[in-house]
């Protein structure tokens, strides 16, 4: 090794630093996607849960198509929301247990940005597949034609907010043993605005209401979640790991 290594490295220039951050961000996203794909169950289980819950409703309520059609938007949204919640607990927990979360906190890169990469991986392999699968289940609930596109779009937009908000709860409960139920308790009340406008968008599509307004508000919620939650997630991770 050269002599130079014994000296402390100078702080990188701003340009260099952002290149470094881009490398770290992409590697973290790539790593999390790879980890999930190596255990396909983690990706498929929420989807199976979603389908199963949707199957329970006609059995529990009534198979009458007219009744199912009126409640379908809400049912699909609530079931998708719960399915997304199910996989949230593992976002930081696995990393905390094997010590790699500690290393993430010690990276010279800003933690809030790196945490965002982990949330993005969660959304890409949970929220997005749920959104793509929802129209299929919509058919089973006799969802009226013309609302399928809005259903998928509202779920894709909304589930991104759900992943961001949910990650705050996951970060807060990562130090708590068996924090799964607690996580739902913390996160579900915060999910209500997304549910209102998400299910509302599908309702509006069916009843000829203003779909664009609902989607615009969903977009605004996502923007707000993108701005605020990374900082909350970073703060929560620091607290959970170091008391």
């Amino acid at each position: 090794m050269s002599k130079a290594e014994s000296r402390t490295a100078p702080l990188p220039e701003a340009g260099e630093a952002s290149v470094g951050l881009a490398i770290a961000w992409r590697a973290t996203l790539h790593r999390d996607l790879m980890l999930r794909l190596r255990r396909p169950g983690e990706v498929l289980n929420p989807l199976a849960f979603f389908a199963l819950v949707i199957t329970l409703f006609p059995i529990g309520i009534s198979p009458a198509a007219s009744l199912l059609a009126t409640i379908a938007p809400g049912l699909l949204w609530v079931a998708a929301l719960l399915a997304a919640l199910l996989s949230l607990d593992g976002v930081f927990r696995d990393d905390a247990e094997d010590g790699s979360l500690e290393q993430l906190l010690l990276s010279p890169q800003p933690l809030s940005v790196l945490a965002l990469a982990k949330v993005a991986a969660h959304w890409l392999l949970t929220g997005l597949p749920l959104a793509l699968m929802a129209p299929l289940l919509g058919v089973m609930l006799s969802l009226p034609a013309g609302s399928y596109g809005v259903l998928a779009l509202s779920l894709a937009l909304g589930s991104a907010s759900l992943s961001l908000i949910g990650a705050i709860g996951a970060a807060l409960t990562v130090g708590v043993a068996r924090g799964g139920v607690l996580l739902s308790l913390l996160v579900l009340p915060l999910y209500i605005p997304v549910l209102v406008f998400g299910a509302g968008a599908v309702q509006a599509a069916i009843q000829g209401g203003n779909v664009a307004a609902h989607l615009a508000i969903l977009g605004a919620l996502l923007a707000a979640a993108l701005i605020f939650s990374p900082f909350a997630i970073a703060a929560a991770l620091r607290i959970s790991l170091n008391g």
């Binding site: 705050i168 807060l172 913390l186 009340p189 915060l190 209500i192 605005p193 209102v196 406008f197 919620l221 707000a224 605020f228 909350a232 703060a235 929560a236 607290i239 959970s240 008391g243």
Partner: peptide
């Protein structure tokens, strides 16, 4: 500390929840 963060997150969300409800 965790409860403080959650209370702050909650307080930011209360107006949004009220608006949506």
């Amino acid at each position: 500390r965790a409860a403080s963060v959650l209370a702050m997150v909650g307080v930011i969300n209360i107006p949004i929840i009220k608006f949506s409800v």
